[in-house]
Design a protein around this nucleic acid. Structure first.
Lengths: 66, 66
DNA sequence: TCAAAATGTAAAATAAACTTTACTTTTAGT
DNA sequence: ACTAAAAGTAAAGTTTATTTTACATTTTGA
């Protein structure tokens, strides 16, 4: 699965730490999701999408490996 | 977090086992998600929503406890 | 170029998702 | 009421997400 978190962060001009604080997870969690180290729970995906005023599908996309 | 999987299943008239098979998880996983025993990963949420031709936000909704 | 901020990364620990097996209870059709 | 299918549940085990701490590297701005 891929995601556009880095791009959305750039649009809002916020850091990983900023985003982490807003959705109340650790900065490393954001970093790990952003660099595809693991897949977030649906709660996190909904919160992340909400921060960006986008849908989950806008931010997260399934690929063949899923 | 709550979800409308049971309703969507009713609309499509498919069983938990059917849905489980379609998205390739165990029937117990569908049952557990449906009865809010745990939160699915984003991959599962995307697949479930896709089966129902709905968005993740249509199916899964954050509540205060999240 | 220097310093600060941001990002990358890693190991250890914990929590949570998911599977498998198996059994019980409920529901629906005849 | 009987039966079969569907749904509920539970325990044990495996895998994966998430946190915490800590340090290294990269980027950015003055």
């Amino acid at each position: 699965m891929k995601n556009t978190i880095r791009i959305e962060r750039a649009i809002l001009n916020i850091t990983q730490a900023d985003l982490a604080e807003r959705i109340k997870v650790s900065r490393q969690t954001i970093n790990a999701i952003e660099s595809n180290k693991y897949i977030p729970s649906t709660v996190l995906a909904l919160k992340i999408a909400r921060e960006f005023n986008k849908s989950v599908e806008d931010i997260f996309e399934l690929d063949e490996s899923d």
